[in-house]
């Protein structure tokens, strides 16, 4: 079907298209440009990449120094790897807890599903920052967990969780769990129970039926949920900053410090661009599955 020319359509399409292009897409171009500038002590604090010479020639002052710095200074490589590793294992833990949760909700009576989903979603609606802060009350040395364990006599010294990598893992799993459960529930709910019954009628054990039918059919949900956890977790700033210690150098924190601590905007831009390249693969996978799911 050939799209017909109707000017009214563009009144609907253009406002969001233009707004998002200007305020979401074009900013990346500016970050890319400024990643080739150099820090300078004026406002804004970087040199011009493009400038005009007195005789009206365009002058290009590209500096690759920021990227060279990124490759040579160990901090960045270590932080990128540490972020990827932390996000990867947090995603696996979320999957291990979130899958049975989504499965149990999908199997509960329809009348209870809405309530259970609301219970899962409610923390997502309430403040992320405050929930991370609330977690500190549980895991700090004299917090709820240690007090309870000491009272029960299970431990004799408080466990050191705050300011360690473990605290960051707990923080990410706690904060991102709803993002794992929801897409998983969405795919598991659509699963036809007749398929499982047919498999059982044909002699397959429930375990076998789960592995052969449920698991493969829920794969889109697994991928969507994993990406919704993994990608933001790699760039997480609040959790490592509030719960982590000096060793939990995640890339989000490095970027923040580069920007707010060192006021080096060009290096911060280069860190962001490098980071974005690193995430291009996962984001493309997420988009691909999203588009496919919407068309299905």
């Amino acid at each position: 079907m050939k799209p017909t020319w109707r000017p009214g359509r563009w009144l609907i399409i253009l406002p969001p298209l233009i707004f998002l292009t200007v305020f979401f897409l074009i900013p990346f171009a500016f970050a890319f440009k400024i990643s080739f500038a150099e820090a300078a002590p004026h406002v804004p604090p970087f040199t011009d990449v493009f400038s005009f010479t007195p005789d009206h020639h365009l002058q290009l002052a590209l500096s690759l120094g920021n990227y060279r710095y990124l490759l040579t200074d160990e901090v960045y490589g270590v932080a990128y790897l540490y972020s990827l590793r932390t996000a990867f294992f947090s995603t696996l833990i979320c999957l291990a807890i979130g899958y049975p949760m989504a499965y149990a909700i999908a199997r509960s009576p329809r009348s209870a599903q809405g309530l259970l989903l609301l219970i899962i979603m409610l923390p997502f609606w309430t403040s992320f920052l405050l929930r991370v802060y609330a977690l500190e009350g549980i895991i700090r040395d004299n917090g709820f967990l240690n007090t309870a364990l000491l009272h029960l006599g299970l431990i004799s010294h408080p466990l050191r969780i705050m300011r360690t990598s473990l605290a960051v893992y707990i923080g990410i799993v706690y904060s991102y769990l709803p993002f794992m459960v929801l897409p998983l529930f969405a795919t598991l709910e659509k699963l036809d129970p007749l398929l499982l019954e047919a498999a059982e009628d044909l002699g397959s054990t429930p375990r076998r039926a789960f592995v052969d039918i449920t698991l493969p059919l829920s794969l889109p949900g697994v991928i969507a949920g994993s990406m919704l956890v993994f990608i933001p977790a790699v760039g997480e700033f609040v959790i490592p900053s509030l719960l982590g210690g000096p060793n939990t150098l995640m890339i989000g924190r490095v970027l923040w410090d580069e920007f707010f601590g060192n006021h080096d905007w060009p290096v911060a831009s280069a860190v962001a661009i490098g980071f974005l390249l690193l995430l291009a693969g996962p984001i493309a996978i997420y988009q691909y599955y999203n588009v496919r799911q919407l068309e299905a």
Partner: peptide, 17 residues
């Protein structure tokens, strides 16, 4: 552009904007 902001780390969106 409507899907990417959902997963884009805030720190990248923040600095680019």
């Amino acid at each position: 552009m409507v899907n990417a902001p959902l997963v884009m780390p805030e720190i990248i969106t923040g600095i680019t904007q």
